[in-house]
Every structure is written in structure tokens, then in C-alpha cells.
Design a protein around this nucleic acid. Sequence first.
DNA 1: AATGAAAGTAGTAATGATTACTACTTAAGG
DNA 2: CCTTAAGTAGTAATCATTACTACTTTCATT
Lengths: 125, 125
Amino acid sequence: MKYSKQRDVILNTVLSSYNHPTAEEIYEIVRKEIPNISLGTVYRNLNKLAEAGIIKKIQMSNGNFRFDRQEDTYNHFYCKQCDQIHDIPSSNFKDINTIIKDKIGYEIDIFDTMFVGICKNCQNK
Amino acid sequence: MKYSKQRDVILNTVLSSYNHPTAEEIYEIVRKEIPNISLGTVYRNLNKLAEAGIIKKIQMSNGNFRFDRQEDTYNHFYCKQCDQIHDIPSSNFKDINTIIKDKIGYEIDIFDTMFVGICKNCQNK
DNA sequence: AATGAAAGTAGTAATGATTACTACTTAAGG
DNA sequence: CCTTAAGTAGTAATCATTACTACTTTCATT
């Protein structure tokens, strides 16, 4: 992978984000530093970085993508009420994985499964 | 809801399908009976029927929708390898639901969570 | 330093599933 | 029968993402 200023700024933007940004959101931030960057460039580089395993690309239940620092100690949970993604330490999933496997026989890929429901905060309201 | 021939045929098509068809697939089947039906009509009626709880609308991990007979005794599992949705009897999920709730504190809505992984068939290959 | 091919870019057009819009048509209750 | 609310066909719009194209940059090798 050849160096490019654009990819460098895009990567740093993702790494310093803590709210699972969309490509569009990253584009808006990067634009402040490289005003004439193309949205296509943002998409291309996000995909390239994700493919290289440098960042994580997560698919929302509506099919859209969000990007994240590569910290594979977290899984994702989407709250229908507050419309936000929550991180769940994957230690919680260690045996859930095998329980599901025992129950249904299928090998659940826990990293691709976006859990959907109501988060603690919203439950208390 | 007023009667319409179009909705009637659409409903029967879904009820007699056993492979979680897309709106487009339903459209193609219905066209044989009502050749000049509009794709928009198919979408509108599928959504209306789903809203009324007469059929089920399930969202794929890529955001697209598929439709299904209303049999809420099944949950859905998507196999990444053979690209198909498998039904899982929801009896299998009874205690998985509470285990997850205990572990992560969040209330998983098991009917909205599309489990992703490799199915039995593909595992054996 | 000069160079040349491969990789990258900006800007724009295309894609594909779904929804919105508009003028016309039908169901069905009084 | 007639009215009107609901439904329809056909087409245009939407929105996130990808593809295309002509130009530019990186970087290993002279």
C-alpha cells in the first residue's frame, strides 16, 4: 500500500473517533483538513483499511456501514430506542457462543451478528 | 382495508412461498397472473400486510427485506457461505434470551436479531 | 536527479432497493 | 346509483455506495 496524505488523515480520524462514525461523518471531519477530498476517496480508503484489518467495518441492521477502531475485544449491540451502537466486551460472549452452537448446531459468527434490542438506559425510562 | 385483487394475489404468493422471497421475486411471480401490476404496488401491499401482522417482514444483514409466512415460532439465521436464510425453531432460544440478558444486561429482541454464521451443511464441506 | 509503471485522486455518473408522487380507477356503504 | 376513500400503474426521486475516467503522486530502479 502506497502512502497517501488522504488515507493518512482518514485513518487518524477513525482512530480518534469514539462513536462508530459513518463514511459521511468521516468525510465531513476530513474535509476540514483536506477541503477538496472526494467522498469516493473516503469510501475507497475506508474499505481498503478495513480489508487490511487496520480498522473495523461494521454493518448496521439497515445495511449501512460504520467504521471503528480495530478492537476485537468488543461486539456490537444496537438499541432500537436510542438508535445507537453499544460496545459489549466479548468476554461476555465466550460461552454464549458455545451455548448457541449446542442449541441450534450452527456456528454463530459472533462478530458479524449485530444484537438488537433495548439498552439498559432505555429500559429504565 | 379494502379488497383488491392485487393484494389478494400478493398475499397468496407469500403464503405459498417457502424460501423467504424478496419483493422483486414476489413481483415476478405475481406478474404471471396480473401482467401489468406495478412493482410499487407489490412493495406497498407487502408493507401493509406486514404492518397488519398478516405476513412477516425480515431485514437481511445487507439491509434488504424479505417476506415470509407469519409463523413466529421461527427465528432466522443467515449462512454467509450458502447465502441462505435458515429457520430456527424459537424454542431453542427460550433460555438463550435470558442467558444473554444476564450476561450483558441488555434485553435482546431475538426476533430482530439475524444470527450470522456457517450452517451445518456448509460446515461439513 | 530522472523516469516510468503502479497505485492513488477528484469529480462525476451509475447502481439498486425502496419510497414518493400523480392522475386515473375501483370497492363498497348509504 | 353515487360518492368518496382507498387502491393502482407508471414514473420520478432518494440515498448509500460503487464504478468510471482522465489526471497526479509515490517510490523503486536506473
